[in-house]
Simulated scan of single mutants.
Amino acid sequence: MSMEQNSSLGGFILLGFSDKPQLEIILFVLILVFYILNLVGNMTIILVSSIDPRLHTPMYFFLTNLSFVDLCLTTTVAPQLLLTMRSKEKTMSYIGCVAQLYVAVGLGSTECILLVVMAYDPVCRPLHYAVIMHPQLCLSLAATAWLSGFVISVIQCSLTIQLPMCGHNQLDHICCEVPVLIRLACVDTTFNEAELFVVSVVFLILPVSLILVSYGYIAQAILRIKSASGRHKAFGTCSSHLVVVIIFYGTIIFMYLQPVKSKFKDQGKFVSLFYTVVTPLLNPLIYTLRNKDVKGALRKLVLEKILVSEKL
């Protein structure tokens, strides 16, 4: 019985953290809070970057794309997870699972490429950055990230949902993910595992390697800054960026590059929370809300709204 035929069973049972009732209640509250903050933070970034002309730069163009990806990624996973956590049946429809699978993989792959593009930092070549990253190139790079992310999603997910499940419909996880669905298959999945490994190397290992190389050059550029306070500030900013990158790629690598039959499936549930709920919130906090330009633009926007309301 394939995954498509599993729809006749009423979809899937998303077990999540149901084996730990007390922990499930705590996680429900935390995920809800993180999701609300995620919505507020990323929507604020998108709004401010779109309205304020001073933020119409290549860096904020990619940050707006990243915020939109994070917003959609969390919305793809968190509401369904919260719903199943508070439901006794904990069921998820077949269509819902497939839609979540395609969209989440597409958005996650897109973010992997976007982070590589953003790793080319103006610190290294400040006088050439604006010239190199002209609007046409920015649009092309963003379009490439989105297109490649969803093309690989169609290929990867289509191969996964064709696997025979033999009536297995219990997902011991927090959402529909490729490794989890492969684990349910009742046939030899060597080809799917090999294909997943290749895709993971291309979209995870290669990007994070390029990012680390880029940050190596950034570190060299920072060391050439004569001002001690300038070096400290630059290192503080770059280190916080690097921490988010390591958390994002590290958790996904743990989930997608470990053997499908791994014994660490319980840890996989918690790990998935990081790249679906936690890092989408950290990105606006680290990349922009700490930035004085964004805070200035946000302050200006709030003041303008207050003045308009007072005039009315």
Rank of each mutant, 00 (worst) to 15 (best):
V154S: 10
V208M: 14
I253M: 07
A185H: 10
F235Y: 10
T160C: 06
S140Q: 03
S227L: 04
M255K: 02
I152S: 05
Y129G: 11
C112R: 05
F203A: 07
W146S: 13
T189L: 04
V201F: 15
R183G: 14
G230Q: 10
H168R: 14
G230V: 08
V187H: 04
S148T: 12
G250D: 05
C175Q: 15
M165D: 14
A119S: 15
I174P: 09
L159T: 01
A145E: 10
N192W: 01
V201E: 11
Y129R: 05
A228P: 07
C176N: 05
Q156D: 02
M165K: 00
L242N: 07
I246N: 06
T251Y: 05
L159M: 05
I247N: 00
Y217Q: 02
I252A: 06
L223C: 06
R125Q: 14
G250V: 06
L204R: 12
T190K: 15
H134R: 12
M118I: 05
R224N: 05
G216V: 04
G149A: 06
H232I: 00
T144K: 03
Y256Q: 04
G236I: 03
Q170C: 13
V154M: 14
Q162F: 07
C157Y: 02
A234E: 08
R125P: 07
M133W: 14
V187W: 01
P135F: 00
L114H: 11
C176K: 06
E193R: 12
Y217N: 04
K226Y: 02
P135T: 00
H232V: 00
S214D: 02
T251C: 11
C157R: 00
L171Q: 11
L163P: 10
G250S: 12
I211G: 05
K226Q: 02
